[in-house]
Amino acid sequence: MPLLDVQNLRVTFVTEDGEVKAVDNVSFSVEPGETVAVVGESGSGKSVTALSLARLVPIPPARYDGGKILFDGKDLFSMGRRELQAMRGAKISYVFQEPSTSLNPVFRVRNQIAEAIHLHRHDVKDVRAEILHLLDLVGIRDAARVMDAYPHQLSGGMQQRVMIAMAIACRPALLVADEPTTALDVTIQAQILELLRELRKKLGMAVLLITHNFAIVANIADRVLVMYHGKIVEQGTVAEVLRHPKHPYTKALLACIPKLGTKQRRLPVIDHELLASQQP
């Protein structure tokens, strides 16, 4: 049985200019321990899909229009509020794009991680030791200092490590990483991705990685989903999708990646009108 099974999910945003189908009939699954990457450009619905997995999309303006999300065989849409809160952070947890704003600016790192522990793990006796252990797991050397710091006193990379420590505090079965490296500079990006890969091995959790960056995908993912206009247009193993893209959008997306050693004046741009006419 897959860990996560999404069937025909539809999420619509109601705006003043009409309705927007952000997620349109999306189905996919994630096996335990697997890393799945969701790739697409801004506005393709990948983040909304990710947030829907714990019903975190704000309603209104959004509206769930149907479909099923089965986590460990249980339907998320039939869960009550308490049941949902007990699952968030404990079984599905999140790492977001912008660590500097995603951490609460007025609480110390220690208190923010402690909150995650207090909410779900009542068995932990020595919370301080557990926080130190978590910070060590995410590769923070001077954990004792970082613990007492406020988020703004840490660098972007450190902030993201703290976010990850918070996310794995309850040993979740699924970690959803929504563009976890977009706000970081390139060397730090590589470190954070390496950390995610390491943690997945150590903790045996599944990872759903949301990104617009194919370079990341090749390094870390087992499978890839390509999203375009709220739909999944292509999915398969990393090798299949990267080497033999079938959908014109995937081809266009891959063509946009600059290659080292080739001389190219301008990068190709995706022609949406052309794509629309080619839709299979």
Partner: peptide, 10 residues
């Protein structure tokens, strides 16, 4: 954003 994080923590 931190509100969403708090919600995601449960």
């Amino acid at each position: 954003d931190y509100v969403r994080t708090a919600q995601a923590k449960g």
